[in-house]
Amino acid sequence: MARWTAADLPDLSGRTVLVTGAGSGIGLVAARELARVGARVTLGVRDVEKGRRAVAGMPGDFDVRHLDVADLRSVRSFAQAWTGPLDILVNNAGVMDVPAARTADGLDVQTATNYTGPFVLTNLLLPYLTDRVVSVTSQLHRRSKLDVDDFDWRARRYRPMKAYQDSKLALVLFSLELQRRLTASGSPVRSVLAHPGIATTSLAAHSSANLVNRFAFLLNDPEHGALPTLYAATQDLPGNAFVGPDGLGGIKGHPAVRRPAKVGLDRSRATALWQATAALTGVGEGAA
Protein backbone atom coordinates (compact mmCIF):
# COMPACT_ATOMS: atom_id res chain seq x y z
CA MET A 1 0.00 0.00 0.00
CA ALA A 2 1.34 3.44 -0.94
CA ARG A 3 2.32 5.60 1.99
CA TRP A 4 0.09 8.63 2.56
CA THR A 5 1.67 12.06 1.99
CA ALA A 6 0.51 15.67 1.73
CA ALA A 7 0.07 15.06 -2.00
CA ASP A 8 -2.94 12.92 -1.04
CA LEU A 9 -4.81 15.72 0.73
CA PRO A 10 -8.37 16.22 -0.54
CA ASP A 11 -9.69 19.51 -1.89
CA LEU A 12 -10.71 21.67 1.08
CA SER A 13 -12.18 24.59 -0.83
CA GLY A 14 -14.82 26.34 1.24
CA ARG A 15 -13.59 24.84 4.51
CA THR A 16 -12.33 26.84 7.48
CA VAL A 17 -9.52 25.54 9.67
CA LEU A 18 -7.95 26.91 12.85
CA VAL A 19 -4.41 25.78 13.71
CA THR A 20 -3.02 26.93 17.04
CA GLY A 21 0.71 27.49 17.47
CA ALA A 22 1.12 27.67 13.69
CA GLY A 23 3.88 30.28 13.55
CA SER A 24 6.59 27.65 13.10
CA GLY A 25 7.35 23.94 13.02
CA ILE A 26 4.69 21.31 12.49
CA GLY A 27 1.84 23.79 12.92
CA LEU A 28 3.15 26.02 10.15
CA VAL A 29 3.67 23.07 7.79
CA ALA A 30 0.13 21.87 8.49
CA ALA A 31 -1.31 25.36 7.93
CA ARG A 32 0.62 25.73 4.69
CA GLU A 33 -0.55 22.38 3.30
CA LEU A 34 -4.19 22.87 4.31
CA ALA A 35 -4.22 26.28 2.63
CA ARG A 36 -2.54 24.82 -0.46
CA VAL A 37 -5.54 22.56 -1.04
CA GLY A 38 -8.08 25.35 -0.64
CA ALA A 39 -8.88 25.75 3.06
CA ARG A 40 -9.17 29.17 4.64
CA VAL A 41 -6.66 28.78 7.46
CA THR A 42 -6.59 30.85 10.63
CA LEU A 43 -3.31 30.79 12.51
CA GLY A 44 -3.82 31.29 16.25
CA VAL A 45 -0.43 32.54 17.45
CA ARG A 46 1.12 34.48 20.32
CA ASP A 47 3.20 36.68 17.99
CA VAL A 48 0.98 37.97 15.19
CA GLU A 49 3.81 39.70 13.29
CA LYS A 50 5.89 36.53 13.36
CA GLY A 51 2.89 34.58 12.09
CA ARG A 52 2.35 37.02 9.24
CA ARG A 53 5.99 36.81 8.24
CA ALA A 54 5.81 33.01 8.33
CA VAL A 55 2.99 32.83 5.77
CA ALA A 56 4.07 35.80 3.66
CA GLY A 57 4.44 34.66 0.08
CA MET A 58 2.73 31.32 0.65
CA PRO A 59 -0.17 30.57 -1.70
CA GLY A 60 -3.53 30.33 0.03
CA ASP A 61 -5.99 32.17 2.22
CA PHE A 62 -4.52 32.91 5.66
CA ASP A 63 -5.87 34.84 8.63
CA VAL A 64 -3.41 35.46 11.48
CA ARG A 65 -4.90 36.22 14.91
CA HIS A 66 -3.51 36.62 18.39
CA LEU A 67 -4.05 33.59 20.64
CA ASP A 68 -2.05 32.59 23.69
CA VAL A 69 -3.55 29.28 24.78
CA ALA A 70 -1.79 29.50 28.14
CA ASP A 71 -3.70 32.69 28.96
CA LEU A 72 -7.38 31.97 29.55
CA ARG A 73 -8.28 35.61 29.03
CA SER A 74 -6.69 35.41 25.57
CA VAL A 75 -8.53 32.15 24.88
CA ARG A 76 -11.88 33.63 25.89
CA SER A 77 -11.27 36.80 23.87
CA PHE A 78 -10.36 34.76 20.80
CA ALA A 79 -13.42 32.55 21.10
CA GLN A 80 -15.75 35.51 21.68
CA ALA A 81 -14.48 37.14 18.49
CA TRP A 82 -15.03 34.01 16.38
CA THR A 83 -17.92 34.13 13.91
CA GLY A 84 -19.13 31.66 11.32
CA PRO A 85 -18.60 27.92 10.96
CA LEU A 86 -15.32 26.31 11.94
CA ASP A 87 -14.87 23.01 10.17
CA ILE A 88 -11.60 21.83 11.74
CA LEU A 89 -9.85 22.87 14.94
CA VAL A 90 -6.24 21.71 15.30
CA ASN A 91 -4.97 22.02 18.87
CA ASN A 92 -1.29 22.09 17.94
CA ALA A 93 0.28 24.73 20.24
CA GLY A 94 2.61 23.29 22.84
CA VAL A 95 5.73 23.63 24.94
CA MET A 96 8.03 20.90 26.23
CA ASP A 97 10.13 20.37 29.35
CA VAL A 98 10.04 23.99 30.53
CA PRO A 99 10.86 25.31 34.04
CA ALA A 100 8.16 25.75 36.65
CA ALA A 101 6.10 28.92 36.20
CA ARG A 102 2.53 30.07 36.70
CA THR A 103 0.28 31.94 34.30
CA ALA A 104 -1.74 35.05 35.14
CA ASP A 105 -4.57 32.62 35.96
CA GLY A 106 -2.35 30.79 38.45
CA LEU A 107 -2.05 27.71 36.21
CA ASP A 108 1.09 25.71 35.51
CA VAL A 109 2.46 27.16 32.26
CA GLN A 110 3.28 23.84 30.60
CA THR A 111 -0.02 22.19 31.54
CA ALA A 112 -1.97 25.30 30.54
CA THR A 113 -0.29 25.52 27.13
CA ASN A 114 -0.53 21.85 26.28
CA TYR A 115 -3.85 20.90 27.85
CA THR A 116 -5.87 23.35 29.93
CA GLY A 117 -5.92 26.12 27.31
CA PRO A 118 -6.88 23.73 24.48
CA PHE A 119 -9.60 22.27 26.73
CA VAL A 120 -11.12 25.72 27.26
CA LEU A 121 -10.66 26.80 23.63
CA THR A 122 -12.33 23.65 22.28
CA ASN A 123 -15.29 23.94 24.61
CA LEU A 124 -15.84 27.61 23.76
CA LEU A 125 -15.62 26.94 20.01
CA LEU A 126 -17.84 23.84 20.02
CA PRO A 127 -20.95 25.80 18.92
CA TYR A 128 -19.13 26.70 15.69
CA LEU A 129 -17.53 23.34 14.91
CA THR A 130 -18.91 21.30 12.04
CA ASP A 131 -16.43 18.49 11.43
CA ARG A 132 -13.67 17.66 13.91
CA VAL A 133 -11.20 18.54 16.64
CA VAL A 134 -7.63 17.33 16.20
CA SER A 135 -5.53 17.36 19.37
CA VAL A 136 -1.79 16.89 18.94
CA THR A 137 -0.39 14.62 21.64
CA SER A 138 2.88 12.72 22.01
CA GLN A 139 4.09 9.15 22.32
CA LEU A 140 5.48 10.26 25.68
CA HIS A 141 1.93 10.13 27.03
CA ARG A 142 2.69 6.43 27.48
CA ARG A 143 5.15 7.29 30.28
CA SER A 144 2.73 9.48 32.20
CA LYS A 145 1.64 8.84 35.79
CA LEU A 146 -1.00 11.56 35.64
CA ASP A 147 -2.50 12.49 39.00
CA VAL A 148 -6.02 13.64 38.14
CA ASP A 149 -6.36 15.27 41.55
CA ASP A 150 -3.19 17.34 40.98
CA PHE A 151 -2.94 17.64 37.20
CA ASP A 152 -2.01 21.35 37.55
CA TRP A 153 1.01 20.58 39.77
CA ARG A 154 -0.10 22.41 42.91
CA ALA A 155 0.73 19.74 45.51
CA ARG A 156 3.62 17.78 43.98
CA ARG A 157 7.20 18.84 43.36
CA TYR A 158 7.28 20.07 39.78
CA ARG A 159 9.21 17.91 37.32
CA PRO A 160 9.32 19.46 33.82
CA MET A 161 9.42 16.31 31.69
CA LYS A 162 6.84 14.56 33.87
CA ALA A 163 4.57 17.58 33.49
CA TYR A 164 4.97 17.35 29.72
CA GLN A 165 4.13 13.65 29.71
CA ASP A 166 1.12 14.26 31.94
CA SER A 167 -0.18 17.07 29.73
CA LYS A 168 -0.03 14.83 26.68
CA LEU A 169 -1.89 12.01 28.43
CA ALA A 170 -4.43 14.61 29.54
CA LEU A 171 -5.03 15.42 25.85
CA VAL A 172 -5.60 11.73 25.09
CA LEU A 173 -8.12 11.48 27.92
CA PHE A 174 -9.71 14.77 26.83
CA SER A 175 -10.30 13.38 23.34
CA LEU A 176 -11.90 10.25 24.77
CA GLU A 177 -14.31 12.17 26.99
CA LEU A 178 -15.02 14.81 24.34
CA GLN A 179 -15.98 12.10 21.86
CA ARG A 180 -18.21 10.43 24.43
CA ARG A 181 -20.03 13.70 25.04
CA LEU A 182 -20.32 14.50 21.33
CA THR A 183 -21.75 11.06 20.61
CA ALA A 184 -24.19 11.30 23.54
CA SER A 185 -25.48 14.64 22.26
CA GLY A 186 -25.94 13.37 18.69
CA SER A 187 -23.30 15.75 17.34
CA PRO A 188 -21.61 14.79 14.04
CA VAL A 189 -18.36 16.44 15.21
CA ARG A 190 -15.46 14.06 15.82
CA SER A 191 -12.56 14.30 18.23
CA VAL A 192 -9.36 12.68 16.98
CA LEU A 193 -5.72 12.54 18.04
CA ALA A 194 -2.43 12.91 16.20
CA HIS A 195 1.18 12.67 17.26
CA PRO A 196 4.25 13.48 15.16
CA GLY A 197 6.56 10.85 16.59
CA ILE A 198 9.68 12.80 17.41
CA ALA A 199 10.31 15.62 14.97
CA THR A 200 13.26 17.93 14.51
CA THR A 201 11.51 21.12 15.58
CA SER A 202 12.30 23.79 18.14
CA LEU A 203 9.82 22.18 20.56
CA ALA A 204 12.19 19.38 21.52
CA ALA A 205 15.50 20.98 20.54
CA HIS A 206 15.86 22.82 23.87
CA SER A 207 14.69 19.90 26.02
CA SER A 208 17.05 18.45 28.60
CA ALA A 209 16.59 15.11 26.83
CA ASN A 210 18.34 16.68 23.78
CA LEU A 211 17.10 13.91 21.46
CA VAL A 212 16.94 16.18 18.42
CA ASN A 213 20.57 17.20 18.50
CA ARG A 214 21.88 13.70 19.20
CA PHE A 215 19.62 11.54 17.03
CA ALA A 216 18.18 13.78 14.30
CA PHE A 217 18.92 11.16 11.63
CA LEU A 218 16.48 8.79 13.35
CA LEU A 219 13.64 11.33 13.63
CA ASN A 220 10.97 12.89 11.46
CA ASP A 221 11.66 16.24 9.84
CA PRO A 222 8.85 18.83 10.23
CA GLU A 223 7.40 17.91 6.82
CA HIS A 224 6.88 14.29 7.87
CA GLY A 225 6.06 15.28 11.45
CA ALA A 226 3.04 17.21 10.18
CA LEU A 227 1.63 14.29 8.21
CA PRO A 228 -0.25 12.63 11.11
CA THR A 229 -1.94 15.97 11.87
CA LEU A 230 -2.89 16.43 8.21
CA TYR A 231 -4.18 12.85 8.00
CA ALA A 232 -6.19 13.21 11.22
CA ALA A 233 -7.65 16.51 10.00
CA THR A 234 -8.82 15.31 6.60
CA GLN A 235 -9.37 11.56 6.40
CA ASP A 236 -12.53 9.61 7.20
CA LEU A 237 -11.66 8.38 10.68
CA PRO A 238 -13.77 7.19 13.59
CA GLY A 239 -14.11 9.33 16.67
CA ASN A 240 -11.11 9.18 19.00
CA ALA A 241 -8.84 7.72 16.31
CA PHE A 242 -5.13 7.94 17.21
CA VAL A 243 -2.85 8.72 14.26
CA GLY A 244 0.94 8.61 14.31
CA PRO A 245 3.99 7.54 12.30
CA ASP A 246 4.06 3.94 11.11
CA GLY A 247 7.71 3.31 11.93
CA LEU A 248 9.29 1.47 14.83
CA GLY A 249 7.97 2.79 18.12
CA GLY A 250 5.89 5.39 16.29
CA ILE A 251 8.96 7.66 16.17
CA LYS A 252 9.28 8.17 12.42
CA GLY A 253 7.41 7.42 9.22
CA HIS A 254 4.12 8.04 7.47
CA PRO A 255 0.70 8.28 9.13
CA ALA A 256 -1.15 5.21 10.33
CA VAL A 257 -3.98 4.62 12.78
CA ARG A 258 -2.60 3.15 15.99
CA ARG A 259 -3.73 2.80 19.61
CA PRO A 260 -2.88 5.07 22.52
CA ALA A 261 -1.68 3.76 25.86
CA LYS A 262 -4.24 1.64 27.71
CA VAL A 263 -4.64 4.36 30.35
CA GLY A 264 -5.69 6.73 27.56
CA LEU A 265 -8.77 4.55 27.02
CA ASP A 266 -9.86 4.64 30.67
CA ARG A 267 -13.32 6.25 30.53
CA SER A 268 -13.69 6.80 34.26
CA ARG A 269 -10.31 8.52 34.41
CA ALA A 270 -11.21 10.65 31.38
CA THR A 271 -14.48 11.71 32.99
CA ALA A 272 -12.76 12.54 36.28
CA LEU A 273 -10.13 14.65 34.51
CA TRP A 274 -12.80 16.52 32.53
CA GLN A 275 -14.71 17.30 35.73
CA ALA A 276 -11.54 18.46 37.51
CA THR A 277 -10.59 20.69 34.57
CA ALA A 278 -14.08 22.15 34.31
CA ALA A 279 -14.01 22.93 38.04
CA LEU A 280 -10.62 24.64 37.72
CA THR A 281 -11.46 26.71 34.63
CA GLY A 282 -15.20 27.24 34.95
CA VAL A 283 -15.63 25.95 31.38
CA GLY A 284 -16.88 22.65 30.00
CA GLU A 285 -19.39 21.24 32.44
CA GLY A 286 -22.33 21.75 30.10
CA ALA A 287 -20.45 21.09 26.84
CA ALA A 288 -21.76 18.73 24.17
Rank of each mutant, 00 (worst) to 15 (best):
A2M: 13
T5W: 03
A7H: 14
S13A: 15
R15G: 02
T20Y: 04
V29D: 06
V29K: 03
A30S: 15
A31L: 09
R32F: 01
E33S: 04
A35K: 09
V37K: 05
R40H: 08
G44C: 13
D71K: 03
V75P: 02
V75E: 01
G84Q: 01
D87I: 12
N92C: 07
V95T: 15
A100C: 01
D108T: 07
Q110V: 05
Q110M: 11
G117Y: 03
R132M: 14
L146Y: 00
D147W: 07
V148Q: 05
Y158T: 10
R159P: 00
P160H: 10
K162F: 03
D166C: 08
K168Y: 01
F174Q: 13
S175P: 00
L178H: 09
A184R: 13
S185P: 00
S185Q: 07
V189C: 10
T200M: 13
A204S: 15
S208D: 14
N210M: 06
V212Y: 11
N213V: 04
F215G: 00
L219P: 06
L219I: 11
N220F: 08
G225Q: 08
T229V: 15
Y231S: 10
Y231V: 11
Q235M: 14
Q235H: 13
P238L: 06
G239R: 12
A241Q: 12
V243Y: 09
L248I: 14
K252P: 01
P255E: 14
V257C: 11
A261E: 12
A261M: 02
V263T: 15
A279H: 01
E285I: 02
